[in-house]
Design a protein around this nucleic acid. Structure first.
Lengths: 138, 138
DNA sequence: ATTGACCTTCCCGTGACTGGAACCATTATC
DNA sequence: GATAATGGTTCCAGTCACGGGAAGGTCAAT
């Protein structure tokens, strides 16, 4: 298989597939003309990677998960802990976005949105400076 | 004011302040020794920027918002539209994260997390390839 | 005279790609 | 056989919003 077919069957851009090879996530063979020669197993790995990326795992997480996938002696606890950590990060991100959303929605609601210059959004920005970083918990 | 005082009073790292000057968001004067000489107005702008960044506005949005802030003839509708667009992006991001979260939480819940290799998380990754990109709406 | 704290610029690295240039290989068409 | 279209290759640069660190100048205090 050449890269285009793999790209279509994995729903990953060819650029991404080359990048994954560059960083060692896949190791397709080469044909005599220098073209990458993908096997079904490469395609399978790419689908795995695509799904993991879709769930928001970092490339490094993907590397770990692939290694676990290929390790018959893995413990599911290991996989689960990777997923749990990622889940925690997602939750933190959601909370942060919801906090932004709340403030922003309020400001947008308060803004007349007409041809006059008065604007509570700008007033907020001008008066509520950035928050002090919290003292890190020990 | 030198950069350290401004950094402390604005709660922005000195690196960030220099960066904001580099990209033209602020234009502090210079003392004879080459040090940046910040005025209160620079500090005010930095606080404005810090707050806008805290609400997730991009640097380009910040540039627009600052320009509107300084434009006495602005229309609040303009400010509001910038904020609404950003709000929409936040909502989209939240929805995407919640979708990930849902799938991931389910998988984590299903995974025994013990010393055996069987793992529904890896099974999902191996079998549910990446989604086809939706046909873009016209 | 020498610390030490502060300031400066400059360059590299981040994550996960994307775009584009320049060039080689294969296949189809005239 | 010449040409064009399509596909492949590598390499370089750019994205976003900074952060780290080196090399060196300035200032206040000891």
């Amino acid at each position: 298989m050449n890269i285009k077919e793999v790209s279509e069957r994995s729903n990953l851009p060819a650029k991404t597939i080359r990048y994954y090879e560059e960083i060692g996530l896949i190791r397709p063979k080469r044909a005599e003309n220098g073209y990458r020669a993908f096997r079904e197993s490469d395609l399978h790995k790419l689908a795995f990677l695509g799904r993991a990326r879709e769930l928001g795992f970092s490339i490094e997480d993907c590397r770990t998960l692939m290694a676990l996938y290929e390790d018959e002696t893995r413990e599911s606890a290991h996989v689960r802990s990777v997923a749990e950590e990622h889940l925690g990060a997602i939750d933190a991100k959601i909370a942060q976005l919801q906090s932004m959303r709340k403030t922003l929605a309020h400001l947008v609601h308060c803004c007349a949105g007409d041809n006059r210059p008065d604007c509570p959004i700008l007033e907020d920005l001008a008066t509520h400076g950035p928050a002090q970083p919290e003292q890190a918990a020990r």
